[in-house]
């Protein structure tokens, strides 16, 4: 059975560093998510052909 781990000064000092890295990574995830949302909602057509022809994606002159 493992003995309860005593809180060492080392752990306290490292906590702020780890918390900082954690918050930074969370912010990065938020930025990538937000950027993706903005690009999708402002970027016009988001469909691809994906092996199936979709008439709405073909330019007008070609479809005529």
């Amino acid at each position: 059975m493992a003995a309860p781990r005593a809180e060492h000064e080392l752990h306290k000092r490292r906590f702020s560093r780890n918390a900082g890295v954690g918050i930074t990574l969370a912010c990065f995830v938020f930025i990538v998510f937000g950027l993706t949302y903005v690009k999708i909602t402002n970027g016009g057509l988001t469909q691809g052909f994906d092996h199936v022809v979709r008439p709405e994606l073909i330019p007008t002159e070609e479809s005529n």
Partner: peptide, 11 residues
């Protein structure tokens, strides 16, 4: 030694 370890602010 751990006293000299960088804090987040140092980075």
């Amino acid at each position: 030694s751990y006293e000299d370890e960088a804090q987040f602010g140092d980075y």
